[in-house]
Simulated scan of single mutants.
Amino acid sequence: MAGKIKVMIIDDSALVRQVVSQALSRDPGIEVIATASDPVFAIDKLRQAWPDVFIVDIEMPRMDGISFLRKVMTERPTPVIICSSLAENGAQATFDAMAAGAVTIITKPKAALKSFLEDASNDIVQAVRTAARANLRALPRPGTGNLTVNPFHRPKLSADAVIAPGAPTAMAKTTEQLIAIGTSTGGTQALEAVLTRLPATCLGIVIVQHMPEKFTAMFAERLNGLCDIEVREARDGDRVMPGRALIAPGGRHMMLKRSGAQYLVEVVDGPLVNRHKPSVDVLFRSVAKFAGSNALGIIMTGMGDDGARGLQEMHAAGARTIAQDEASCVVFGMPREAIKLGAADEVMGLERIPEAMMAYTRSAS
């Protein structure tokens, strides 16, 4: 993008508008061209200048953020960052906002807001830079949105913090095989596009989608109603079996375990890995360790590099590995980092991934 990234902030909190504006203005590559206390004021200002990125609250007077977002995505699609509290009673509203096509969520607390925003200033800048590069053409509308949480003020630990590296303990090639998927920004639409095209005969699937607590169950339930396969939020001890996709719960890590010839998932607490919980690296390392060549690993659209090293470990353990290509990604972060590491056997567009999964399923039978 040539020139500065132009940002408009729409939030009924004067404090949020002030602190976020100050944080962004310290970056020479970003310019806050306007702020507004609600979307109606914003619409007046948009007649003079249109931003490259919006930062929008949900609950505002006169027009809510969801209605404004839908208007923007219909009339002039532009990257939108949702800046909202994720209180339980607001979870559905936030989910609806992301379903309308927002790129990511900034979670803001109800208390100590000023200090939080100041501490997270570097991450706010990074969120804007990432949103400005988002490929909105890869966002199907209507869709399920890009429900991911921007990982503000989080330490970047590796998978070592949850699961130790070590020699693979996977059995030789068996008929008990599985597919592991990791994704983030743009992943909710990508997963819908993939899972709705799979028959019930598909191998068992384990999935990490970066998503906050309270949202994964809602997301899994929605997909379950659209798919031939069973889709559900994973519970500790769930068996990985054909025709079933298990989505790691928000706020918990999910790992693969082996019990005899069967594969189960273990859902555990633990520190953030690559600033995420659940982490793709944690899942992929466990798949490398306990499934080895009995697995297919797929890394899809998402910001950052979570999953890249885990996919490399799966590749080294004999698994087949796929990365989504840049053209079909909303954000080509995670797949790009995996490709740079040489972790992907093949790079392909989103539309080819379901058939690749079924081809792998047929080869396993």
Rank of each mutant, 00 (worst) to 15 (best):
Pro249Asn: 06
Gly251Tyr: 10
His253Ala: 05
His253Lys: 13
His253Phe: 09
His253Leu: 06
Met255Ser: 14
Arg258Thr: 13
Arg258Glu: 13
Ser259Arg: 14
Gly260Val: 12
Ala261Ile: 13
Gln262Glu: 15
Leu264Ala: 10
Leu264Asp: 12
Leu264Asn: 11
Glu266Gln: 15
Val267Phe: 01
Asp269Trp: 02
Asp269Pro: 07
Gly270Asp: 08
Gly270Trp: 06
Val273Asp: 00
Val273Trp: 00
Val273Thr: 01
Asn274Met: 12
Arg275Phe: 02
His276Phe: 05
His276Pro: 10
Lys277Asn: 13
Lys277Asp: 04
Pro278Glu: 04
Ser279Asp: 08
Ser279Ile: 07
Val282Leu: 09
Phe284Met: 15
Phe284His: 10
Arg285Asp: 05
Ser286Lys: 11
Ser286Glu: 01
Ala288Cys: 04
Phe290Glu: 15
Ala291Asn: 09
Ser293His: 07
Ser293Pro: 15
Ser293Arg: 14
Ala295Arg: 03
Thr301Lys: 05
Thr301His: 01
Thr301Arg: 04
Gly302Met: 10
Gly304Trp: 08
Gly304Arg: 07
Gly304His: 11
Asp305Cys: 10
Asp306Thr: 07
Gly307Lys: 13
Gly307Met: 04
Ala308His: 01
Glu313Asp: 14
Met314Cys: 02
Met314Leu: 09
Ala317Trp: 00
Ala319Cys: 00
Ala319Arg: 00
Ile322Gln: 04
Gln324Tyr: 02
Asp325Lys: 10
Asp325Val: 07
Glu326Met: 13
Glu326Thr: 07
Ala327Ser: 15
Phe332Gln: 02
Phe332Glu: 05
Phe332Pro: 04
Gly333Met: 13
Pro335Glu: 03
Arg336Val: 02
Glu337Tyr: 10
Ala338Ile: 07
Ile339Lys: 03
Gly342Ala: 09
Ala343Phe: 01
Ala343Leu: 05
Ala343Ser: 07
Ala343Arg: 08
Ala344Gln: 07
